[in-house]
Amino acid sequence: MERDLKIRTKRFALDIIDLVEKLPNTISGRAIANQLIRSGTSVAANYRAATRGRSDKEFIAKIGVVIEEADESELWLEMIQEKGWIDVSSEKQEASELVAIFVSIVKKMKNK
């Protein structure tokens, strides 16, 4: 599962990179692109860091960051969708699924 999530979060980051290249080159488009690129790529980077955690407590803390970044990505994707710039429904769904997966992992870890 860990390897699958590494691949999945990296794929999400790559999809976000591709997506931001399509956003309008306006003040608002650039601002949202900058925010989304940071949060979207951070999901993968922080998940990789979490897998190298030295303890369950450290792992849970780092997964908390992953959850925050995936949720923030979902917000920016919602804004893009609502502005009608491009269809981001698949990326938005993936962000939502990643949040749910990582929340579930944290709950299981805390109930050990």
Score class of each variant (00 low, 15 high):
M1C: 02
M1A: 13
R3S: 13
R3H: 07
L5M: 12
L5N: 01
L5E: 03
K6F: 03
I7L: 14
R8S: 09
T9M: 04
F12M: 10
A13E: 13
D15E: 15
I17F: 08
D18H: 12
D18P: 00
D18G: 15
L19H: 08
E21D: 15
E21V: 10
K22N: 14
K22V: 04
P24G: 13
P24H: 13
P24W: 09
P24A: 13
N25W: 06
I27D: 15
S28G: 00
G29S: 08
A31S: 14
A31L: 12
I32S: 04
I32E: 10
A33Q: 03
A33W: 01
A33T: 03
A33Y: 00
N34W: 04
S39H: 06
G40F: 11
T41E: 10
T41V: 10
S42Q: 09
S42F: 02
V43D: 10
A44Y: 06
A45M: 13
A45Y: 01
N46G: 09
Y47H: 10
R48P: 00
R48A: 14
R48W: 13
R48M: 09
A49L: 12
A49H: 05
A49R: 14
A49M: 07
A50N: 11
A50M: 11
T51K: 11
R54Q: 15
K57D: 13
E58N: 06
I60N: 08
A61Y: 12
A61N: 14
K62W: 04
K62H: 08
I63N: 01
G64K: 07
V66E: 04
V66H: 06
I67C: 06
I67T: 06
I67M: 07
E68Q: 15
E69W: 12
E69D: 08
E69V: 06
A70S: 14
D71G: 08
D71W: 01
E72K: 11
E72D: 12
S73E: 11
S73V: 03
S73K: 08
E74L: 04
W76L: 11
W76G: 03
L77F: 02
L77S: 09
E78M: 08
E78P: 00
M79H: 05
M79A: 01
M79G: 01
K83S: 14
D87I: 02
D87K: 12
V88K: 02
V88P: 00
S89K: 15
S90D: 15
S90E: 15
S90Q: 15
E91A: 13
E91M: 05
K92V: 00
Q93M: 05
Q93W: 02
A95N: 06
L98W: 07
A100N: 08
A100F: 00
A100L: 04
I101G: 05
F102Q: 04
V103D: 03
I105T: 01
I105W: 00
V106G: 06
K107V: 03
K108I: 00
K110N: 14
K112Y: 09
K112W: 02
K112H: 10
